[in-house]
């Protein structure tokens, strides 16, 4: 039984007669208790996929079609009111920039309590007690003191801990973390990743971890999805992916990183640059940069194919 099952999700932006397909036929699923890494370069549609699942896409963007089955219900069919019950309550979200996601004029503890009062219909006193317990869970030794502090009194890593506290305050079964460590230093980044892993292990929740940094996923999460120009190009188990990635784009990304760690004299770079959504090439979107390009790749876009259990790739090589 999957906790989340996304099928053929399409989200587009409608501007000046143009249709930009930001999320293009994306499908994936996450079982209970698993971390799924959603990886890609800027503009590949990973954040838009997350916002679509939360139904937070703003106009001129719109979810065109698809299915997002979460805990047995299709989120895309819920009324706005029912969706509000899901957001925050059943699905928590952590954003990249911890400074802008917190309100600078309220004490951080009250910002956690607020979430509990709204979603759990708890009383003030009860909410405060839960908030202090949450502060302890996200790694503060002195939760009582932290409760009364304002965001500017905390470091970037501490603010991110507060946001994690808010995201898990209502005991969600899924947390979507969108580049939660990108604005942080390496050491703080590793602390946050440790914390998230610990929370997943202890609570049994699932997580979508969005990142542009492939390196993070090496020891984190069970499955990984690679996005490019709005499409999912590969889905794989983390172990198998880092041993032998399937899609030529994945291979290129990985050799960029491995190359940096190895002893070669030159990096095997992926030529060209990421296409803009407004001017995507025909056929496979990656074909102009692909070293294995064949005539068929220019004609028609390949479909996602399951080549082994849980291993999917969108490429004619398979």
């Amino acid at each position: 039984m999957q906790l989340l099952d996304v099928t053929e999700l399409n989200t587009s932006f409608f501007t000046d007669g143009n249709v930009l397909r930001a999320v293009n036929s994306v499908s994936f699923s996450i079982p209970k208790g698993e971390i799924f890494g959603l990886v890609g370069e800027s503009g590949c549609g990973k954040t838009m996929t997350a916002l679509s699942i939360m139904r937070l896409v703003q106009p001129p963007g719109r979810i065109v079609n698809g299915q997002v089955i979460f805990e047995g219900k299709d989120l895309l069919l819920l009324s706005e009111r029912e969706m509000e019950e899901v957001r925050g309550n059943r699905i928590g979200m952590i954003f990249q920039e911890p400074m802008s996601a917190l309100n600078p004029v309220f004490r951080v503890g009250d910002q956690i309590s607020e979430a509990i009062i709204i979603h759990k219909k708890a009383g003030k006193k009860e909410a405060k007690e839960s908030a202090i317990e949450l502060l302890r869970q996200v790694g503060f030794d002195d939760p009582g003191k932290r409760y009364a502090q304002y965001p500017h009194q905390l470091s970037g890593g501490q603010r991110q801990r507060i946001l994690i506290g808010i995201a898990i305050s209502c005991g969600p079964s899924l947390v979507i973390a969108d580049e939660p460590t990108t604005a942080l230093d390496v050491a703080t980044e590793s602390q946050i990743i440790n914390l998230l892993q610990g929370l997943v292990d202890s609570s049994g929740m699932s997580m979508i971890f969005i990142t542009h940094n492939l390196n993070i996923m090496r020891k984190f999460g069970r499955r990984i999805g690679i996005m490019y120009a709005g499409r999912m190009l590969e889905q794989n188990f983390v172990d198998a992916f880092f041993k032998e990635p399937l899609h030529p784009y994945s291979k290129g990304l990985l050799s960029s990183i491995y190359g940096l760690m190895g002893d070669q004299k030159r990096l095997t770079a992926i030529p060209g640059s990421v296409p803009r959504l407004a001017e995507l090439p025909g056929g496979c979107t990656f074909h102009p940069r692909c070293p294995y390009v064949m005539p068929a790749c220019r004609e028609e876009e390949p479909v996602m194919k399951e080549i082994g259990k849980g291993q999917w790739v969108r490429c004619y090589l398979y």
């Binding site: 370069e41 542009h212 290129g252 030159r266 990096l267 640059s273 990421v274």
Partner: peptide, 14 residues
Amino acid sequence: LDVSIQSQIVNLFL
């Protein structure tokens, strides 16, 4: 820069 572009620029420096 994006990862796939980073390696091109690193090669240019080399």
